[in-house]
């Protein structure tokens, strides 16, 4: 018996010396069918601008393949409006079509004879911002501005929204001739969505869930699932204006009404980027509304309002004696109101 136990001990030792084997898996990437990828978002009063490319293998590092030589037919409802023009590098464009809210548009991509892919979306009606209110508070020692966006959520339809927040920052600089001129920088403004139940993702998931414990709603999208038909006051906690060296900031708040497809696409983009590196996360499939392809043809319309901050002390020091209007209306490019013929370059 003791002899037997000795033998077993020896074999056990050998077992623990055996380590897990790793090997490269031969994977025939070329056997995977590559798909047409559509990128295009339609909006009223904007040109139709669609990008076409083809998917590439997971491990390709040579870059993407832009699709050229395709025929992209554009439709409003069932009415053919015309073909888009290829501008090169897979960009198909036309400013001849009138995009308006409340309509459905589609594209058909073909090699001239056979349809290879197609997609359809709608451009929702805009929802007006009724009012913006501001106040501020200190959070963790930082002064933050609190913006309340008021809008009336339409009853009876499924609506999807995105808040786009942009700071137009007016920055003085000295030109070669020693004149002081102004640049306008467009910088995405940050909203602390973790402090807002709607933007945190609950509009889709429910009351206490979010995309991920630590991740934010970087695209600021939400649905009307929990606010259907409500007179909505959406409170946003944002960074206070950085004012040390700027003349002012025009903080624009766009309330975009986005198509359902676009909403789902943005949601899955966020989820995938936030979770793909963790094997304990469920996989996220990028949403598409492209038949026989991937990508998105989405639509949106918007209403906009803005908050203007003026650094009067800096303006007075740089432009002594300049007459400034008593107040600036939201939406105005405030420097043009008093700078007059001074150069202004939109960067």
């Amino acid at each position: 018996m003791m002899k037997g136990i000795k033998y077993i001990s020896l074999i056990v030792a050998l077992f623990y010396l055996a380590i897990a084997c790793k090997e490269i898996l031969e994977y025939d990437e070329d056997s995977v069918n590559k798909v047409i990828v559509v990128s295009g978002i339609l909006s009223p009063d904007k040109a139709v601008d669609i990008r076409l490319s083809r998917s590439i293998n997971r491990f390709d590092t040579l870059g993407f393949v832009h699709l050229t030589g395709k025929t992209v037919a554009f439709f409003k409802g069932n009415t053919y409006l015309g073909d888009l023009t290829h501008l090169g590098k897979g960009r198909y464009y036309s400013d001849q079509f009138d995009i308006s809210a409340g309509n459905t548009y589609s594209i058909s991509i073909s090699d001239g004879t056979h349809e290879e892919a197609s997609s359809e979306t709608n451009v929702p009606q805009p929802v007006q911002i009724i009012r913006l209110d501001t106040t501020y508070r200190f959070t963790q020692g930082e002064r933050r501005i609190i913006v309340t966006v008021q809008f009336a959520e339409p009853l009876g339809t499924d609506n999807y929204y995105r808040l786009e927040l942009v700071d137009e920052v007016f920055v003085p600089y000295m030109a070669a001739n020693k004149d002081i001129r102004i640049r306008i920088l467009r910088i995405p403004a940050r909203v602390y969505s973790d402090n807002n139940w709607l933007l945190r993702g609950m509009g889709y998931y429910g009351k206490s869930d979010k995309f991920h414990d630590w991740a934010g709603n970087q695209f600021n999208i939400f649905s009307d699932r929990h606010i259907e038909g409500e007179d909505m006051r959406l409170e946003l906690e944002m960074d206070y204006f950085r004012t040390d060296s700027v003349l002012g900031v025009n903080r624009k708040i766009y309330l975009q009404s986005i198509s359902k497809d676009y909403f789902y696409y943005l949601r899955t983009v966020m989820q995938q980027s936030q979770t793909a590196s963790n094997p304990f996360n469920e996989p996220v499939q990028i949403y598409t509304n492209v038949k026989n392809g991937a990508g998105i043809l989405g639509g949106y319309s918007f209403s906009v309002d803005s908050i203007v901050y003026i650094n009067r002390a800096l303006i007075d020091s740089l432009f002594p004696g300049a007459e400034l209007p008593g107040s600036l209306n939201p939406g105005d490019y405030f420097p043009s109101a008093f700078i007059g013929d001074r150069d202004m370059k939109n960067l």
Partner: peptide, 21 residues
């Protein structure tokens, strides 16, 4: 098994999405 790139979308700081597909 594939990657896709979406261009020209007015979202985010970067204007291109490179995504696993």
């Amino acid at each position: 098994t594939q990657q896709i790139r979406l261009e020209g979308l007015p979202v985010g700081i970067g204007q291109t999405h490179v995504l696993g597909y």
